[in-house]
Amino acid sequence: MHGEYKMPGGKLVVIDLTVRDGRLAGVQLSGDFFLEPDSALDTINRALEGQSEHADEAALAASVRDALAADVMMYGLSPEAVAVAVRRALHREPAA
């Protein structure tokens, strides 16, 4: 499943994932945003892995924010924008 969100005043935030037993799996964040250190990408992917497919935007954003160290720099990206992209991916009809 695939979701995209162009953060207003920010960059394109893309999520690819699958759902297994009601939980997010194989989550991959991508896009043309800026994020340092670059290892924070994996941190965000891991924070989303295993979340309930029914988690709302606020809960998803909180789990991303809580996983990130204080010195992580985001430009054109935010935990909230990641959460929107996840919800958009989940709202798509799964491929038959």
């Binding site: 893309v14 690819d16 964040l29 991508s30 896009g31 043309d32 994020l35 670059d38």
Partner: peptide, 9 residues
């Protein structure tokens, strides 16, 4: 491509 862009996308 940028550091965080998906190759196939």
């Amino acid at each position: 491509i940028g550091r965080f862009q998906s190759l196939r996308n």
